[in-house]
Design a binder for these strands. Sequence first.
DNA 1: AATTAATACCTAAGATTTTTATGCATAAGG
DNA 2: CCTTATGCATAAAAATCTTAGGTATTAATT
Lengths: 112, 112
Amino acid sequence: MSNSKLYKGSLSTIILQLLFKEDKMYGYEITQRVKELTKGELNITEGALYPALHKLEAEGLLEVEMKKVDNRLRKYYKLTQKGTTESVSKLEELERFMQTMNGLIDPKPSLG
Amino acid sequence: MSNSKLYKGSLSTIILQLLFKEDKMYGYEITQRVKELTKGELNITEGALYPALHKLEAEGLLEVEMKKVDNRLRKYYKLTQKGTTESVSKLEELERFMQTMNGLIDPKPSLG
DNA sequence: AATTAATACCTAAGATTTTTATGCATAAGG
DNA sequence: CCTTATGCATAAAAATCTTAGGTATTAATT
């Protein structure tokens, strides 16, 4: 609902970035955290999130730890070493991308 | 080549934004302009561009004017009234998205 | 003169990512 | 008891992009 099409392609970056700061989170928590941090602007659907988490895990960027809380099972994800590295480079890529987009929508004349 | 996955979903925004400033452009020109404006960071493939242009035209956001230059045919695209409106709202959406992403990667504590 | 690169359009198969629509199960609230 | 919230998951469909072709003219290189 009301999800910007622009968000496409940025899901794994968001996941890695959250885990970089939070150390460990479970899926449902991620959807709620994103909703809260973006004031409802971004709503990650579970149909997108879980496959994305599984893929990141398969790539060796995340590792899993199961935990039972209130008799309900949670799958906590945290970055591996490789995931930490990737998280940093994805952040740089995001910043580069945003600069690039800014350059497109608001071209600065070359200095000099 | 070397295209950020983040760019997915932003192609139509880019097209509309270029046409907003340029008044009229043809397809090949758009690929070159983007490459130039982004210093090679973004390379729009023709396989992505042409279907996107056709879709925007079908949606009534662009209109076409054929022109023969050097015995080669060019399809010039320009914004319709509706396309101009959409261009503005897409730009706002992009700016909102970038703020949102900034809020995600660098959460500011609430003031007060 | 012949070949390659650049200009200029196009489409179709495949890959990737996301939405939509489900399903299951436990806990809490009305 | 029934609905909402929590918590996981998958599968069909839609959307978007890459890759890999195709056609044709003009300019540059060999």
